[in-house]
Each structure stands twice: as C-alpha cells, then as structure tokens.
Amino acid sequence: MSGATLSVRGVSWQPGRGRRLLSDVSFELAAGKVLGIAGANGAGKSTLLRLLYRFHRPVSGSVHLNGRDIWSLSARESARQIAAVLQEQPTDFALSVREIVALGRRPHGSGFAGGGRHDADIIDGALDRMGLFSLAGRSFGTLSGGERQRVMVARALAQEPQLLILDEPTNHLDIRHQLEIVALISSLNITIVTSLHDLNMASQVCDQVLLLHQGNQIAHGAPEEVLTPGHIEHAYAVRVLQQELGPGRNPHLSFHL
C-alpha cells in the first residue's frame, strides 16, 4: 500500500435548504501523512469525513486525490483508492468475519466468492494484523462492538486503499485494542484522515490536526501549533492545563469546566 496526496479546497456542505453544517474548509495533506480532525460534538467532523469518502458531494469547493477531483472518478475507482471505517457498524450481517474482510477485495474485481491466492494472502494479512484469525469463522453479528470495529478496520486494510478514513477508530475498544489501533495508524504507509475525541492521542499519532467549531475551521497545522489552550478553549468551552513532558514530546493536556 502507498499513500495519496489529498487536497481539500474550500469545501462546504448543507442538507438541501437546511442549515450549513460545514463552511469553507481547506487543507493539504502529503502522501503517507496522518491528519486528525478534532472538535466538539456537532463541530462538523463526520460531515467532513463524508465529503472525503464521497458519501456527500460538497455544495462548494472540491476534494482532490493525487490531483484528481474524487467526483471525476468512477465508483469503482474511488473504492479502490478510498476506504472508510465508520463509528457504528451493522450487526445483522449473515456473513463470517473472513467473508466481511474479503469484501474489501470487491473493488478489485473479487471478494468472498473467489479471487485466488493473491486475494487470500491479502485477507489473511489483514486478519492477522488485527488479531482476528481466531474469529475468522464466527458470524459477524455475534461479535462485540470492539470486535466488529476491528473487523471493519481489517476489511479496509484488505481494500488496499491509498486514503484511509477512520471515524473515531477507538470507539468501543478497550485500552489494549485502542493502543493497537494507535500503533497501526503509526505503522501504515498510507494517507490517513481520522476523527478523534482524545486530543492527547491526536497529538501522539497525527502529523497534522484540523480543529473545527460549529462547522468552521479554527486551526490547521502541526499538533503543537493547533492543540493550544486558546484554540481548545474556543472549540470545546473548557479550561485547559498543559503539562510539559520534556524535549521532543508534545505536552499532555488535561481539561476542566
């Protein structure tokens, strides 16, 4: 897998004639880098992610992947390049874990109905990376929320995307598996955009952070430039204490009403 350059230019979105939920957001992300999107509930994080994985079309602005507007791509081309893991997963799939992960190969012309040794190796690798081999034969609907989350990450990895969208990837996960997801994000050689509630985690794993408030972009840049007490207090309406941890380490943040 290799990453793609991502260019977001002045995107806005609103549902029909409803209230605008996102206004004039812009950023550039180099191939292989990780962008964290942060902000309070209702800030526009999930709306922005939906624009990036082509669920919503922006009412203004554009999203370019490797210099191409994603809406100029066919649905299959888009699915070969962009994978998304969402917060809430369906529980009624009558498929096994392995079959769900194999669905990641469908944009490449294969899936659980076949695909040959090459696809099988990719699926095995995704299962192994997410620690799912022991669950491969289990029905997806019988899994816990955390297990389902790991399956959907494995499906996205099997898709071999150039851009991976993660909407709160540590949702439902216990501490051990949260740490595994953090390690995974740090190890992948693809471009990643992830929404995160945990600002200390964002500071740890992200090359850049985009901070949103009520659909507007407050700040974008390196974590130490964006996750400042002033910016965070504006975005979340909380008081921030910043503890310095030493040279080469980002400060630890704690929050108070």
Rank of each mutant, 00 (worst) to 15 (best):
P251R: 07
R9Y: 00
P247V: 11
P223W: 03
P107C: 05
G42S: 10
N200H: 11
E147R: 10
R148N: 04
G18V: 13
I185A: 03
G221R: 13
H118C: 11
L65S: 00
H172G: 00
C206H: 06
A156C: 13
S46L: 09
N189G: 11
R9F: 05
L52Q: 03
Q159W: 03
V85A: 01
S144R: 09
N200C: 12
G146C: 06
V226N: 04
A31M: 07
E28W: 08
G3S: 07
R76M: 09
V240F: 02
A235L: 10
L241S: 14
W13S: 05
L73P: 03
L157C: 07
L196A: 02
A84L: 08
R138T: 04
A202D: 01
L6K: 07
G61F: 10
A113V: 12
A102S: 15
L103M: 15
A219W: 02
V34G: 02
P223G: 10
I122D: 00
K33Q: 15
E160L: 09
S144V: 04
H172T: 05
L164P: 06
I100N: 01
Y236Q: 13
L184S: 04
L73T: 08
V182F: 10
R129N: 00
H234G: 02
S23W: 00
H231D: 01
S110M: 03
F27I: 07
E180F: 08
G39R: 08
T194Q: 09
R249N: 00
D24T: 09
T170W: 07
G221V: 11
I181T: 01
G221I: 05
L132C: 10
R117A: 14
L29K: 01
F93E: 01
S12C: 11
V151H: 01
I100C: 00
R19C: 00
E88M: 09
R80V: 00
D119W: 04
V209W: 04
S144M: 08
S110G: 14
T191R: 05
A40S: 14
I165L: 15
S62R: 15
G36W: 09
A113W: 15
S78E: 00
I122Q: 01
L21Y: 10
H234F: 08
L257C: 08
R239E: 14
S74W: 08
G125Y: 07
V97P: 08
H197Q: 11
L241M: 12
Q214I: 01
V209A: 11
D128W: 04
G230D: 14
A43H: 06
H252C: 10
L135A: 13
R80F: 10
H213W: 11
V226W: 02
H108V: 04
G36M: 04
I70H: 02
S96R: 15
L173E: 07
A83W: 06
D174Q: 02
W13Q: 05
R148L: 02
P15H: 15
I192P: 00
L21F: 11
M1L: 13
L179D: 06
T91S: 13
G104L: 06
T170K: 01
G114Y: 06
A183Q: 15
V85L: 09
Q159S: 12
A222Y: 02
V238D: 05
P161H: 06
R155F: 08
L52E: 09
E99V: 01
L179K: 10
V34Q: 03
D69I: 10
A75Q: 15
K45E: 05
I175R: 11
A84R: 00
P15M: 04
L253T: 08
F112C: 09
E224Q: 14
